[in-house]
């Protein structure tokens, strides 16, 4: 997304250590300041370790707890005697092999995938529209940033206000004479398919895509679209053949970010989700806090599985993008 800095003519560094003796006295050797030596690099990273180490520790502890190690509350044989089956290392993982767990992961994939796809497609189109607006209307177009400052829980509440059966959209349809009563309005929220969560996530994520896409479009040379128009391309052809290819890196990167977020998040599902199938994050939360302590390894196992899935998606994405870049270079 961020092009490397353009090489400058002035004081350019010889890569890999030029001899300082060759320079006039008093001149600072123009080496990359961050990259003097591995030790220097390590020192630059030190402050971040305060934050990175807890993250890695948290992920590691979750994985360890999924096989029964390092649990905050350990199970001794005395608990096992009280009728509970003695837990072995894989109890938590075995608990995952249940149809509702599978359904929960599938719901997560569906909701996150649909929301990310809708936001990326809608965001690209709306960003194109914003970009084409005349300069004096640009200020008024900033209204698209409103959902950025709304927290997820308020966006969930807005989905209820607008899209529930007693909501404003249903009332508007009633006034338009399209439905006679609330029961005729489709059950978008809590209808079993997670559509309410898709609506809420899409609404929250659209401005995110638009922000990135508008910024990227401002870097697009307008002469490219003008030339395309002059050569006879219609508006849609320009969009398809010039604008979308230019936006592609921003769009697929934001798809990944939005998909991963919605796949693991809990705040909107706490308001708009259902109990079965629950979104995977909520399922893990319920196992951890709302059931008995012996379910905690299962919660950790589910979270570990989520982390592995997300890491797998990132790896697949990186390989896919590398493949795309390679093909572009061949062209």
């Amino acid at each position: 997304m961020h092009p490397p800095p353009a090489p400058s003519a002035a004081c350019h560094a010889p890569r890999g250590g030029g001899s300082p003796a060759a320079m006039p006295p008093g001149t600072v050797p123009a080496q990359p300041p961050g990259g003097r030596s591995p030790a220097w690099r390590g020192a630059a990273l030190c402050p971040l370790l305060v934050l990175l180490l807890p993250f890695l520790a948290g992920v590691g502890l979750t994985a360890a707890q999924s096989v029964g190690w390092l649990l905050p509350v350990q199970y001794g044989p005395e608990q096992a005697l009280g009728g509970i089956v003695s837990p072995d290392a894989w109890t938590g993982w075995r608990q995952l092999a249940q149809p509702h767990m599978f359904g929960s992961l599938l719901l997560g994939l569906r909701v996150a995938g649909a929301a990310a796809l809708l936001s990326v497609a809608g965001g690209a189109l709306l960003a194109y529209g914003v970009w084409r607006l005349p300069a004096r209307m640009q200020l008024a177009a900033l209204v698209f940033r409103v959902p950025l400052i709304l927290p997820h829980i308020v966006v969930g509440f807005l989905a209820i206000v607008f899209w529930s059966r007693s909501g404003l959209v249903s009332a508007a349809l009633h006034h338009a004479g399209l439905i006679a009563g609330q029961a005729e309005f489709p059950a978008l929220l809590w209808g079993g398919d997670g559509l309410g969560m898709v609506i809420a996530y899409t609404y929250k994520e659209l401005p995110f895509v638009m922000l990135l896409a508008v910024a990227s479009l401002r870097r697009l040379d307008p002469r490219l679209t003008e030339t395309a128009r002059m050569l006879g391309a219609g508006r849609w052809a320009v969009l398809r053949d010039v604008v979308i290819p230019h936006l592609a890196p921003v769009l697929h990167a934001s798809f990944l970010i939005l998909f991963l977020y919605a796949f693991g998040a809990v705040e909107i599902p706490l308001l708009l989700g259902e109990s079965t199938p629950a979104m995977p994050g909520v399922a893990a939360y319920d196992l951890y806090f709302l059931r008995s302590l012996e379910d905690r390894p299962a919660a950790a196992a589910l979270l570990t599985l989520l982390l592995l899935c997300c890491a797998g998606f990132v790896a697949a994405y990186v390989r896919l993008v590398a493949g795309l870049r390679g093909r572009e270079r061949q062209l």
Binding site: L48, L51, L52, P54, F55, A57, G58, V59, G60, L61, T62, A63, A64, Q65, L70, L71, P72, L256, I257, L260, F263, G264, A265, V266, G281, A284, Y285, Y288, A299, A300, L303, T304, L306, L307, C310, A311, V314, V318
Partner: peptide
């Protein structure tokens, strides 16, 4: 990639492990 991981992986996966 490693440094950006906390934004990509679900926060809960880290937070519940760290909680104890």
């Amino acid at each position: 990639g490693l440094l950006l991981a906390p934004a990509l992986l679900p926060a809960m996966g880290c937070a519940l492990g760290l909680y104890g």
